[in-house]
Design a binder for these strands. Structure first.
Lengths: 321, 321
DNA sequence: TCAAAAGTGTTATCCTTACACCCATGT
DNA sequence: ACATGGGTGTAAGGATAACACTTTTGA
């Protein structure tokens, strides 16, 4: 941009700008009623790589890294957040790293290339986020007492109440409803309370607190939490689920996909009505004869609505089951 | 696009990472029923500066630059978007610049320090965005015919229809409703149609198409459009307007502020009800005796709701007048 | 007395939610 | 027959939008 609105900057010697930009991808897919994220390496980490001169854009740089590291070609991509860390361990000099994170949606079927990568369920990293079979035991048995203890630990009444308040909002204590979109706040709360520990670099094994979910390298788990929160929020007003579906699918398959992402069950009749009433899908004319029950009509996404959806708020329902 | 696989990167000599990061701020305030943006320099540009080693974080770097260039201390800050340009004019070598843009909300009263900065109304840059006095003439007289012409210019029927479709959605042609949140799409459409021209660097005067709004340097006007769209969307579900209000205010002042941002009028009784019912404000007990009419009760924002609002969707209404 | 702004109340409508129920197929 | 999933209908409740109306001040 015009780099020197003030005159001081001009005097810096060229090439001294010690900044690196890292591109980090949260690649999401759905299969077997589970939401998956693409990881690489033995230690869990997200696909990532530096932004370089010959990348045409941030997005194309990201695509290139992911393709190279995992063999996956990405479709839908959306920027998540950009942040800077003072010094990442492993940098000799104090070099600044800017991390630009992205959410990508894909289908699991795409040929998985490299051997050192694989799909992991979200809920291995965030076991407290899956409420499809009711509130997980973990929350009442472990998180709640530990969070209460964390709140009690402080002496000032105001801060104590503020901690209790935040925990109640985030986890739905004291009769509050569970809100699946608060995934990031929950992770941050647990982090602040010292209940989740991340592996700093390489080396440490992962058995610090296995009940509290698997760790990831550096801040990757936080980025994943950001992605989950964003996606859970987005599926309610933009038809992005279809990026995760095969070309044709039954309405129940679609519903299960949304439920997997949201981590909660939704009401079948209402779901179908809203999908069809918004004309998001059209029948293929064929039926699927899978496991048990009456054959289901197969549907296909109507790509035409994407144009319309760009304007109006096309929404997916999440009414309680 | 095609560059080397993973291992080659390691051999790059240190200090060669030719990347600069720029922080750009869209600082917004409201006064006299007008939404304002803070600009610097003779040519219109947004406050900005490079991210440097001694900045504690991206946000603190941004604060520092804005304070230095304009004398304004920022309160509420929110990240907008990060993007990269191949080569910006003014860079001798092909240096990569990453721009990280932010939206900041403040009160106009804060002492304006530097002399080369000032507040400009949004609508000088986007005259088609202000619908408070009805749909601007500009749209029907100039934009619509030019956009139709732009659509007709192309031969393939499919693309022609797609252009007409996009224009209709964005600007509310063919009986469609006006959607104030589509500010960015509208700007991009006009840009694509060649109806808005930006000043590349310095030098060119601004009278290319004065009816189509003032230009800004580089892509700053696009960033401003992004900020407007984001803010117009956000005021509907988060109580951010209060960041722009003085400590105490009347309900009509509050409504006028929202109207200024949204660029359209809203219904008074409904507005008041929603505000009070959500307990966003409390009476100070005093009244204001300003211009004409019955004295109005003064209110103050209840900061307590910010905690609650972090969870639930506290919303501001935008019902049609 | 009139204009201008502050306020209050009521009603129609739509959307969401919840729930009840029937249909078609394989074992 | 019955389990499993597919599929339809309807009624209650809440939120929104639209509009009508009264009150209080200054000129």
């Amino acid at each position: 941009m015009d780099d020197q609105p003030t005159e001081t900057k001009k005097s810096r010697p060229p090439g001294t700008s010690d900044i690196k930009a890292d591109l980090i991808a949260v690649v999401v897919a759905v299969g077997d009623n589970e939401p998956y994220v693409l990881t690489i390496g033995l230690k869990d980490s997200l696909p990532s790589g530096p932004f370089e001169l010959d990348h045409r854009s941030l997005q194309s740089g990201l695509r290139k890294w992911v393709e190279e590291q995992t063999g996956h070609a990405l479709g839908y991509i959306e920027q998540l957040y950009t942040f800077a860390d003072r010094d990442r361990i492993g940098n000799e000099q104090q070099q600044r790293v800017i991390s630009i994170s992205y959410l990508a949606l894909t289908r699991k079927e795409q040929a998985a290339g490299a051997s050192n990568c694989g799909w992991q369920s979200w809920y291995e990293y965030f076991p407290w986020e899956d409420h499809r079979a009711g509130t997980p035991r973990l929350i009442g048995d472990l998180l709640r007492p530990r969070l209460i203890e964390w709140a009690e630990r402080v002496h000032e009444a105001a801060i104590r109440r503020e901690r209790q308040w935040r925990a109640a909002i985030a986890f739905g204590f004291e009769g509050r409803p569970w809100n699946e979109e608060l995934a990031l706040q929950r992770y941050e709360l647990l982090y602040e309370a010292g209940l989740v520990e991340e592996i700093a670099r390489e080396g440490d094994s992962n058995d610090i607190a296995p009940a509290l979910g698997r760790s990831m390298i550096a801040d990757h788990r936080r980025i994943l939490a950001t992605a989950i929160a964003r996606l859970r929020s987005k599926i309610k007003y933009r038809p992005v689920v279809f990026e995760l579906m095969p070309p044709t699918f039954t309405l129940l398959q679609l519903q299960r996909a949304v439920e997997a992402l949201a981590g909660r069950l939704i009401n079948k009749p209402n779901f179908r009505r809203l999908i069809e009433q918004q004309e998001l899908v059209e029948e293929t004319g064929e039926t699927s004869l899978e496991t048990g029950g009456r054959p289901a009509k197969l549907f296909r996404f109507r790509h035409a609505v994407l144009d319309a959806a760009a304007g109006a708020g096309t929404r997916l329902p999440l009414s309680r089951a």
